[in-house]
Design a protein around this nucleic acid. Structure first.
Lengths: 348, 348
DNA sequence: GTGAAAGCGCTAACAT
DNA sequence: ATGTTAGCGCTTTCAC
């Protein structure tokens, strides 16, 4: 079934069939009817490959994810998929499968630059996609990793200062400040912090947020109450245990863990020490991972609008592909986060 | 950059460039060298769209998922992506987003048939893909849902009796039987069962497995110990509560919940009743969802080889696209599952 | 072993 | 308003 067959059946030229299908030129109602009839009759579907070759537009958006198994990735894809579908694009998915090679040292992506470039240029120069959305596994600066390929590139859940890219991330600093303020509002003053890997961008941003909340409240963060974790549950546990031992004469009334996994580890440590949660020590997490709904009591945490990040990234991509659009490069959208109240924060 | 440019630079014809790139015909070392040089020099990447048009092969595999947010989906995609990448294919992803419209009544997919057909024919007749992998959200029979489109269609994580499809699922009945046997081996005899929605395929298969394990052991399942849940955590809780009340004179020593969510609900109920877990009542789940590692003690459960399902589905798809392959339609691969020991099953 | 040229299915400029 | 036709970038037949 080709456009030629349809043209023959409808007794018109292929051009007319094309005009009808794409609405590119006016066609007499009578002929248009014959064409529509012929299409229905034959079940004709235009060959998108031929169309792409001719128009130099694939209607595909390449989605390059660092790892499909990252907890944030499917939510982001969900957002991308929703917008992309509305606008008539398809998703060409490419998984860099970084989780296995990097474990939780996602900051070492630089070493992966080659792999990324190769995947990217295959996608773009192979003319398979019109634009690319790069989906990171956490928010950090990946400037210099993504080369300019002459097509729109949007970075989701990470940022880059490169002028040829756009990015969509979330209010990290702001959200941490909000989390701490939430604890202040519940009456907590002596607050401990369990950080993520100290040299990583989210850990630093979140710490900035913590400090600014303290500053705004006219309080000071006790340095002895800051413990460095590595994002995993185990260090949440050990950091909390440390705190319980070294600060037993003056225990914090609340602890802010920079992610849910460490928060859950901290919860375990609190209970293992025979303390009540949240009455003796309150816990606040970050990420609103699925598990946070399953621990008991449900973890109070910060939700990142992952779907929104995906959706916005897709909007940015599609917008740049519209005929009359300016490039809009260098734009950096930052989405707000929100607190999900659970049962792990008590009023004092 | 086109093949023509490369040909000009290398002072050969476009045909020769093509021969060198694809290794389709022998080329004199001298000329081949010039071509390779020109390609390196220009960074030329063949236009895949043009190639596809000419060869009628896109090297894309359509992956139609019922919902990217289903807990199994990303693991299956991970498996697909791994094999597909090895074999030089790309993934064209399409999300049917059924989770929102169906909640947990995934058995009502029939109503979605139109949406599925449309997505499928767009993918296939639009000539965007060479084959399609349909990724279900749980294992059930979806015969008649997927129409024959003249290209290979593999169903992952569901089955169909349609002769034009292949499928890859897991040993459901076998796995449940193993789970019950695991409890037998730990010395349990009085075992309760919390089922999934009773009319769904996995619930029925798992019940068959339970019964066959009992039969093999020469024991009988007490009907009063079977409670019907709906796969969600809440019914796990209420079913367990029911059991604790009505059977308080002769409590079961173990309960097999047909998924982790209900198992976790049951755990909550056991503890709320002041009983010790696993000493007083042991719990066994199914699915090995991420949360099962976070509850305390870690849930003993059954792991489905989701990545393996994806990988095998991709193998099946790619194999059928190899030049000399027979169609291999109607094949139904069934993968084994395994038990993940946790801390919720005690010896009696 | 190599090149000329046809043609994959479509769109769009151009002619009518 | 509609048809004719060139051409998108590639592969592949056929002739040499």
């Amino acid at each position: 079934m080709t456009i030629k067959d349809v043209a023959t059946i409808a007794r018109v030229s292929t051009a007319t069939v094309s005009y009808v299908i794409n609405g590119t030129k006016p066609v007499l109602p009578e002929k248009r009817q014959r064409v529509i009839e012929a299409i229905k009759q034959t079940g004709y579907q235009p060959n998108q490959v031929a169309k792409s070759l001719r128009t130099k537009k694939t209607n595909n958006i390449g989605v390059l994810v660092e790892d499909i198994l990252g907890f944030s990735t499917s939510h982001i894809i969900n957002g991308i998929s929703e917008h992309v579908e509305q606008s008539g694009y398809n998703i060409l998915l490419n998984d860099l499968r970084m989780l296995g090679s990097l474990f939780n040292r996602y900051d070492q992506i630089v070493q992966q630059k080659d792999k990324i470039s190769k995947a990217l240029s295959l996608l773009v120069f192979g003319a398979r996609v019109d634009a690319v959305i790069y989906v990171g596994m956490f928010d950090r600066d990946i400037s210099g990793i993504i080369t300019d390929l002459g097509k729109p590139i949007i970075i989701a859940y990470s940022t880059a200062k490169d002028s040829h890219t756009c990015s969509v991330t979330y209010e990290n600093e702001q959200a941490s400040a909000d989390a701490v303020r939430y604890l202040f509002d519940a009456g907590h003053r002596r607050i401990a912090v369990i950080t993520g890997l100290a040299h990583t961008s989210p850990a630093q941003l979140r710490m900035r947020g913590v400090l600014s909340a303290f500053k705004d409240a006219g309080l000071v963060l006790d340095g002895a109450l800051v413990k460095n974790g590595d994002w995993e549950r185990e260090t949440g546990y050990s950091c909390m245990k440390d705190l319980l031992e070294h600060e037993k004469d003056n225990l914090p009334t609340a602890v802010f863990a920079m992610n849910d996994l460490m928060a859950i580890g901290a919860m375990d440590a609190i209970r293992d020490a025979g303390l009540r949660l949240p009455e003796d020590i309150s816990v606040m997490g970050f990420d609103n991972r699925e598990v946070s709904r399953f621990v008991w009591p449900r973890l109070t945490t910060v939700e990142i609008d992952l779907k929104g990040i995906g959706f916005a990234a897709a909007q940015l991509a599609v917008a740049q592909l519209e005929p009359g659009s300016k490039k809009a490069k260098g734009r950096n959208i930052v989405l707000p986060s929100r607190i999900i109240p659970g049962g792990t924060v008590a009023k004092v």
